[in-house]
Every structure is written in structure tokens, then in C-alpha cells.
Amino acid sequence: MSVTKNCIVTIDYRILDAEGNLLHEEDEPLTYLHGNYGQIFKAVEEALEGKEVDHTFTVKLSSNEAFGQYDPELIVTEALSELPAEVSVGMEVDGYFDEDSDDVIIYTVTAIEGDHATLDGNHPL
């Protein structure tokens, strides 16, 4: 059976950087509904179209096709008094864009110095 629109597809995947270093690998396979429903990256879904069971292949994505370009404006400094009491480096906290309080952004705490923390809203990959 080949992958076509409205098939339920299960894939194992790894994310590597441009030099081939492993950045991310899930313990469990990913299952999604195939057919441009926005559940996986469009370029990956396009590459899966027509593939058969047990097919192995590589897809190279630009940052725009994957998690987006790095944006230095997504680095912010917040007073610790504005963050959860148990905040620590590596912790993720929810934040909001000033212009749209319905649009949640996940920040990773990258540093704590004195009474301020540095938060990075860029996707870690």
C-alpha cells in the first residue's frame, strides 16, 4: 500500500543538522493523517506521497520549511518576579505577543542572572 491522501501514516524519523549530527529522535513513531492537513511539515508530507511500507528516505528542509528562521527579537529579558517561583535554566514558560494575547509563544529560559532571566522564543531546533 502506498501513501495517499487520507491514509493514516506512521513514521519513524530523526532530525539531523547540516553536518549529520543527531539533533532529535523520538522513542515512539509519529502517526498522522496524510493529505495536507498541517500535521507535519509540508515538504516531508510531499516526500512521503506514494512511498510504500518500510521505505527509507531523506528529506532536507530549509529553516523556513521547518521551524522558521532564528529571530533575535524573540530573545527577551524578564524580571524573576514576573516568572514562576521555581524557574530554572532549561525550563519552558508560556508567553504572549503584545499585539495578540491569544497567540501563545513558548520561551525557554536560557540564563538567570541576578533578578532577571533571559528567555528565548525561538524553536530549539
Rank of each mutant, 00 (worst) to 15 (best):
V87R: 07
P72K: 13
A117G: 05
V59T: 06
D103E: 15
K5T: 14
K5M: 03
S62H: 05
T58N: 10
E92G: 00
V44C: 12
Y96D: 03
I11G: 05
H24L: 09
E92K: 14
F67P: 02
I75P: 12
T31M: 08
Q69N: 13
E99H: 14
F67W: 06
G68F: 03
G38D: 10
P72M: 09
E73G: 07
Q39T: 04
D17G: 04
Q39G: 10
E26K: 12
L16Q: 07
F41T: 02
Y37D: 05
V76F: 01
T77K: 03
E82P: 02
A66Y: 11
D103W: 14
V93M: 00
I105W: 01
E99F: 15
F97L: 14
H123T: 04
P29Y: 13
S101G: 00
V89F: 04
V9E: 07
A111Y: 04
E86T: 15
F97Y: 13
E82Y: 04
N21E: 02
E46L: 07
F57R: 00
E46H: 05
E73I: 03
P72D: 15
E19V: 04
G121Q: 04
T118F: 06
L83V: 00
H24M: 05
K60Y: 01
K42E: 15
A47E: 13
Y96G: 01
T77C: 02
A85P: 06
E113W: 00
D102L: 15
L22R: 08
A47V: 01
N122C: 05
E46Y: 11
D17K: 01
A85Y: 02
L16W: 01
T108N: 07
V89L: 06
T31N: 06
G68K: 00
H34K: 06
I15Y: 14
E28G: 00
A79Y: 02
D98A: 11
C7M: 12
E45R: 06
L22I: 03
E46S: 03
I8E: 13
R14A: 13
P29Q: 04
K5V: 14
A47I: 00
N6M: 06
T108R: 14
G90V: 14
V53F: 11
A43K: 12
L83N: 07
K51A: 13
G121C: 12
K60G: 02
N122W: 01
D27S: 09
D103N: 15
S81F: 00
T4D: 13
G90K: 04
E65Q: 15
V89R: 13
P29V: 07
L33T: 03
L80E: 02
D115Y: 11
D102M: 15
D98Y: 11
N21H: 12
V3H: 11
E113K: 09
Y70P: 00
E73D: 13
